[in-house]
Amino acid sequence: MSTTLPPVDELIDRLAAQMRPHVAPDTVLVGIHTGGVWIAERLHALLGLTQPPASIDVSFHRDDHHLGNGLRAGGRPSHLPDTTEGAHLVVVDDVLQTGRTLRAALNEIFDYGRPARVELAVLVDRGGRELPVAATYCPLTLGLPDGQSLDLARDDAGRLSFSLGEKRGAP
């Protein structure tokens, strides 16, 4: 199967354009480690927000912990603003697939307080949902088969790129 993806920079520009009419200067972007944090940094600059971007690690709330792949070494603590009470948050991630990461992210966020509104921005919706989750902002929708992986990487110069491949352990 050959899928060609647009450059990541272009996707980020399109995502920012979708978000621009709906964000205020005090909107807080919350990147999910690791890819979401990179994208949130870029969006933050493009959208000219005043609040620094926040970051979260969802390891504590993963639902596959008992399967032996819950906690990875070097997991980073979440960094959320002192108060998320009443805030407008936009959760940022690279790829939306099953929706389980977002479920975990929402649990993590609500451990810090009760935001007024939470939205979701992703670069790519690749299909394959297992939970009733939808992105608020998403510039590209694909229908990738289960066995295919789609990973965001960042090189030493800070350039972002997607790579398509076979999932490890896929049939």
Partner: peptide
């Protein structure tokens, strides 16, 4: 040993949250 110490690091922040509990 380093793996355990690495894993411990994010747990130090749990006590500083509004909800000092994670569901693992």
């Amino acid at each position: 040993l380093h793996g355990i110490l690495d894993r411990a690091e994010p747990f130090t922040a749990v006590a500083e949250r509004e909800v000092k509990k994670v569901p693992l």
